[in-house]
Design a protein around this nucleic acid. Structure first.
Lengths: 208, 208, 208, 208
DNA sequence: CATGAATGAGAGTTCATTCAT
DNA sequence: GATGAATGAACTCTCATTCAT
């Protein structure tokens, strides 16, 4: 067998492998969105693929692991966009406005993923933040600290500001999905105005 | 056996009946806080009481139901306080500041319940909102609408404002629990300032 | 409900409980005998009872545990008989002869149990000694030591003598079951003669 | 590439083929010794080699088959030694003494194999005799019959004598491994004396 | 012939729920 | 109304085996 053939063989194998992994993640995304995290079983996920039950375990150890992979994948898809937006920002308004607009845009267009975080059959809203998601929060906090350091923003508590932005982002996104007539633009304008007006009024940090 | 004893016995029994229900709820609160909602089983809950497994079903139909009862109990404990605070408010500042202060105060002192929303064994943050909790959000929205109607507050979108308040409240509460040195007072001051400053800047509602 | 009724209720319950446990052990005995230890699954055992699958786990944690219970039950049934025989013995001949006869008798009449130790579908012989069985070996060793101490038997190594008796007992029993024409009496006579003749020739113990 | 290299490659390949089989058997021996027969899976065995899972099936059909191959290999290593010892024997004493000594010697020095028969995770002793091992027993029986035929030994039941010898051999070997201070020599002396003394006392065979 | 991912039967086990006591 | 064992559907996961590469 020539090197070429070998390479091709390897290529085919790894291709299948990657596509199977993706198939499982995609199925998981759909099923989580439909049933909610708690009610979903590993069986539900494989049933939603064309793979055999055992195959799931070649890729993930458990429901938790595939969920995490799913959240991480999502986070890794949004985070660069958000970062780019913040880096490009020339002032605080652009920083805030770009962030919210990008996030709401993503939520509107990647409905399924975000829905996972929201619904289950018992009508309870569930939100789970995986480490990768939390890392995205952290990135925001760091950028806020930089903005404070460079004088673009007043010296407020970056932790609490980050928390507030995240809280507003998720809750408003939720309402946007629930109320169809609310556009990305309106949602972003609302959240941006709240923070532009609010930040000026925030207490300056104690120096510890 | 005297009539007194009989009466006492009857009284005792009804007391037991009520206290069994409470015992289950209390056990559920502890177990949910320890294991997280998803990992908790009905068995775990009864094991944490002195009752037999069958007894559970004299009071609740399922894990979902007891969880709901638990959340409802909590919500019913906070909601009147929050309502009272808002009713007593003579202006928008008192409205906002009283709400946040009351909520953060509750979170700090009723740690366990709020923890349920945060912990699970995989270090992920989980938040579940039951209908009763959502009803509390609704109450806030209604009060916001009243405040807008009476001119105490500018005519902003009450849905989005409510969502923002809720988002900030939960996220900042989370940070308060994570960062021990952050006091209820500081947290409340931060959130209050954000909204006092922010609301003025919010876009006025379109008339539809 | 009167105390009587209470007692009766309790009685019925515990009766069922005990009989279920016994039903599982009996089924296990049959199934192990037929399939051998290795090939037997917990499911095979419950299928051989009229109980539901989950019920098994109210009584035993695993195949190992039920097997042990089974072996122990057996050992506890034979050991007293063997002990009685040895205690009744007025000399070494009666000691040995009574032991072998009792053991072979038991094997012949409790065919099923002993078979468990012998066959599995791959034609391999399997023997598993649980702690309770080993305890029976120990009892024999202690009785041998007593016999040596009282001068009834020469001062040979009781460990090795016990091991030899056990080895001969199991192997000869095996052959007795394989060869139908071999009677308990013949088997016992053979083994007894071997040890009566052999013990005299054994090396005396080194004094350490 | 020269003819030499080609030849070498071919030789290497066949060598590999043979050595793969041996590698599997060796791995099986180690794994069985560690986990016991029942708990060992084919996966455990291949994991203990450097081969891929599919490769296993080029050499063996199942766990049973590799176990059998392993036992056979072992039996084939001991049986010729035992046979040689018995053939060389000039009288009954040498016959018996040589057999036990050889067996105990083997057990002491090939610890691992014998351990398979003894250990399992639950502290129970397990003994499994494969057909090849049983064939070794048979060889002994045939040699006993020859010895009887040639008048070297009294006319006792060769089946039962063989069974007794095997029983004593395995049990005493077990004790030898458990009690470190017991030497091969002492064990062999004990077993030999038992049978030398015992055989004289054994009942003569009925003529059927 | 080696590889190692896919397969899917089936083992072990859990658990909400029922129901005789 | 309390009890707790029985139930059995359904889940998680393993593993021998196959087969495309």
């Amino acid at each position: 067998m020539s090197v070429d053939a070998d390479t091709k063989a390897r290529g085919k194998r790894e291709e299948t492998k990657a596509s199977n992994r993706q198939a499982i993640i995609d199925a998981a995304r759909r099923v989580f969105a439909e049933l909610g995290y708690g009610a979903t079983t590993v069986r539900d996920i494989i049933r939603a693929t064309e793979l055999a039950s055992g195959t799931f375990y070649n890729y993930f150890k458990s429901k938790e692991e595939v969920f995490q992979a799913l959240q991480d994948e999502t986070a890794l898809r949004v985070r660069p966009r958000l970062r780019a937006e913040r880096v490009r920002a020339k002032n605080f308004e652009e920083f805030i406005s770009g962030s919210f607009r990008t996030f709401f845009d993503f939520v509107k267009n990647d409905h399924t993923t975000f829905a996972t975080m929201r619904r289950n059959p018992e009508m309870q809203r569930v939100r789970i933040d995986t480490p990768e998601v939390v890392a995205g929060f952290d990135e925001l906090r760091v950028d806020l600290e930089i903005a404070i350091g460079s004088g673009v923003m007043p010296d407020v508590d970056p932790d609490l500001l980050m928390a507030s932005i995240v809280g507003v982002a998720f809750e408003v996104a939720n309402h946007m999905l629930a109320r169809d007539e609310l556009s990305v633009d309106e949602a972003a304008k609302f959240a941006t105005a709240l923070f532009l007006g609010g930040v000026r009024a925030l207490p300056k940090r104690r120096r510890g």
